[in-house]
């Protein structure tokens, strides 16, 4: 599956039954310098549209929402140690978490890149 996007500015890619989730380039630009990332515990159950992680810039804290229901199977400890990576490579090496997908049908409502670019007014 190619990369999909949410209206809350997360991106998601799927490999088998596991989804990798991060925040979009647009979101990282809006946040400004990221200084802290709070990642969920492995094994935690997350629900679509509910807070899964927190990302903090110098100015403010923002939630990162789970785009789908599932269970956290991995988190990116690199961004916890080096939050600035979220600004450098948000849609690549600065992924946030991997979620074992509980309900694959939830993937269908997500935006593709063209739709997301239009959504953010590019």
């Amino acid at each position: 599956m190619s990369v999909k996007f949410t209206e809350e500015h997360e991106w998601i890619t799927v490999s088998g039954d596991v989804a990798t989730v991060g925040i979009t380039i647009h979101a990282a630009e809006q946040l400004g310098d990221v200084v802290f990332v709070d990642l969920p515990a492995i094994g935690k159950k997350v629900a679509k549209g509910k807070e899964a992680a927190v990302v903090e810039s110098v100015k403010a804290a923002s939630e990162v929402y789970a785009p789908i229901d599932g269970e956290i199977v991995d988190v990116n400890k690199t961004i916890a140690d080096e939050p600035a990576l979220v600004n450098k490579d948000p849609e690549g090496t600065a992924w946030f978490m991997k979620i074992r997908i509980a309900n694959p049908s939830q993937l269908e409502g997500l935006m593709d890149k063209a739709a997301y670019d239009k959504f953010v007014g590019k």
Partner: peptide, 12 residues
């Protein structure tokens, strides 16, 4: 202006 393109950390 809350920040210029270089960002708050660099400005600080």
């Amino acid at each position: 202006p809350v920040q210029y393109p270089t960002g708050i950390l660099t400005e600080h």
